[in-house]
C-alpha cells in the first residue's frame, strides 16, 4: 500500500517505452485520451484497443497488470453503463419489464461511455506503469515551461509534486503511529455514527497537521541551506533529451490519427 503510493504503479522494465522521454509519453497519452472522446464507432475503439495491445507489448508489461488497474473502478464503470441503459431513450425497444425499459440508443451510449472510461484508465495506467513519478514531474515541468511567460508556475508546481512524493509515505507512516498512540489512550476510530467517527479523527488530524507544518519549516531551512532559491539558474542532473525513439513513437501516433480520421 505504501509502496503503491510511493512509486505510483511504476514497474521497472528495460523497454523502449520506459526509456522514451516522459514528455513524449505525456503528450502521446494526452493525445490518445482526446481521441477516446472523439471516436464514436466501434471500429474506432477496435483500433484503439489494438494500439494499447501494441504499447503493452513494447513496454513488456503484462496485460493482466492493466486489467488490475481497471478493477478498483469497476463499480463506476458498471454504474455508468446501467444509468445509460435505462435512462437514455431512442431507437427500438430492446427489452422491457414493467417500468424498466432498455432502448437501442441507451445500449449504444452505455457501452461507449463504459469503453471510454476503460480506455481512459488504461492510458493513464500505461503512463504511470512505465514512467516513474519523478520522471513525470520532470516531464510536466518541461512541458509547462513555455507557459511561464503567461504566469504558469511550472517550476514551483514540479517542486511541490516532488516534495509531495517524498513526504506522502512519511506522513502515512506517521498517521499510523499517531493512530496507534491515541488508541493506546482508549481512542476509538471505528464505532459510532458518521458524526462521531468524524469527531474521533480530531486526535489524529491535529497532530498530523502540526507535525506536517513542523516538517515544512525544517525542510525550508534545509533547502535554503542547500542554496535553493527557486527555479532561477537551477540546472538538472538528468537532462531530458528527445531521441530517435521519441520521434518514432510520435510518428506511430500520427499514423494512428490518420487511421482514425479515415474511419470517422
Amino acid at each position: 500500500m505504501l509502496d503503491e503510493i510511493m512509486i505510483g504503479q511504476y514497474i521497472e522494465r528495460d523497454s523502449v517505452v520506459h526509456k522514451s522521454d516522459p514528455r513524449t509519453k505525456i503528450l502521446v497519452v494526452m493525445f490518445f485520451i482526446t481521441t477516446v472522446f472523439l471516436i464514436n464507432t466501434f471500429s474506432g475503439y477496435f483500433i484503439l484497443a489494438g494500439f494499447i495491445y501494441l504499447a503493452t507489448m513494447m513496454a513488456k508489461i503484462n496485460l493482466k497488470r492493466i486489467i488490475k488497474s481497471i478493477k478498483p473502478l469497476t463499480f463506476i464503470i458498471l454504474f455508468t453503463l446501467v444509468i445509460h441503459l435505462f435512462m437514455t431513450r431512442g431507437g427500438d425497444v430492446l427489452w422491457q419489464w414493467r417500468f424498466l425499459r432498455i432502448e437501442e440508443e441507451g445500449l449504444r451510449l452505455g457501452l461507449f461511455m463504459a469503453l471510454r472510461l476503460i480506455f481512459l484508465i488504461t492510458f493513464t495506467s500505461l503512463l504511470t506503469l512505465t514512467t516513474s513519478p519523478l520522471e513525470l514531474t520532470d516531464g510536466l515541468e518541461r512541458l509547462l515551461n513555455p507557459f511561464k511567460r503567461i504566469g504558469v508556475p511550472a517550476h514551483e508546481l514540479a517542486m511541490m509534486m516532488t516534495i509531495a512524493l517524498r513526504f506522502i509515505p512519511t506522513l502515512l507512516e506517521e498517521a499510523q503511529k499517531i493512530m496507534n498512540a491515541q488508541k493506546a489512550r482508549g481512542a476509538d476510530f471505528e464505532s459510532g455514527n458518521l458524526i462521531k467517527k468524524a469527531k474521533s479523527l480530531i486526535p489524529l488530524l491535529v497532530p498530523l497537521f502540526i507535525n506536517a507544518f513542523r516538517r515544512a519549516d525544517d525542510l525550508a531551512l534545509a533547502m535554503e541551506s542547500r542554496c535553493y532559491r527557486g527555479g532561477e539558474n537551477r540546472t538538472r542532473m538528468n537532462v531530458l533529451m528527445l531521441a530517435t525513439r521519441d520521434y518514432l513513437i510520435m510518428a506511430t501516433s500520427l499514423i494512428y490519427l490518420g487511421l482514425v480520421a479515415i474511419l470517422l
Binding site: L134, R166, R214, L219, C227, R234, T235, R236, M237
Partner: peptide
C-alpha cells in the same frame, strides 16, 4: 539538521544528493 526525515527533498537518493549542485547551476 537533527531530524533525518525532514531534510531530504527527493524521493530517490541520488536525485536528492543532486539537489544542492543543481541549485548551484552546475552542468549535468
Amino acid at each position: 539538521f537533527q531530524n533525518p526525515d525532514n531534510q531530504l527533498v527527493a524521493n530517490i537518493v541520488e536525485e536528492d544528493i543532486a539537489f544542492g549542485p543543481e541549485n548551484l547551476g552546475l552542468e549535468s
